[in-house]
């Protein structure tokens, strides 16, 4: 149980950072932390003490194995996060070109 609580704490760290930090790069990192917490949660759901990896071995089918599907799922979600992070970094660079700052409180041309 304690691992789930720690995993959720990591998620809260990410969401805290995304909502309170003023630096664009720190916000992007916080989004990443949130994503990692959820990925970790998937792996924890699939985890089984003492089980081994889920592939065929030359000795035959391995009966005591962890659930392989969440691993495939988080691989997909990692790729998506990679794409989103690259896009966010690109936008941050462009914003820096335009506003000459990474401070989100000074990037306020839109309002209302």
């Amino acid at each position: 149980m304690i691992v789930y609580i720690l995993c959720f704490a990591l998620f809260l760290v990410g969401i805290y950072g995304a909502l309170t930090k003023r630096d664009l790069i720190k916000i992007i990192l916080s989004i990443g932390i949130m994503g990692y917490a959820v990925n970790l949660m998937f792996i924890l759901f699939a985890y089984k003490t003492g089980a081994s990896f889920a592939i065929l071995t030359k000795e035959g089918i391995n009966t005591n194995m962890v659930d392989p599907l969440p691993q495939a799922l988080i691989l997909t979600s990692i790729v998506i996060e990679l794409g989103i992070t690259a896009l966010l970094v690109t936008l941050a660079i462009r914003l820096f070109e335009k506003y000459k700052t990474f401070d989100i409180t000074k990037i306020r041309r839109l309002s209302g």
């Binding site: 990410g14 989004i31 949130m34 989103i84 936008l91 914003l95 335009k98 839109l110």
Partner: peptide, 18 residues
């Protein structure tokens, strides 16, 4: 303005996707 709006949108979208 467009970069600013897109950044805001992307952050909110990422939080909701997570």
């Amino acid at each position: 303005e467009e970069y600013e709006a897109a950044f805001k949108y992307a952050i909110m979208g990422s939080i909701s996707s997570t």
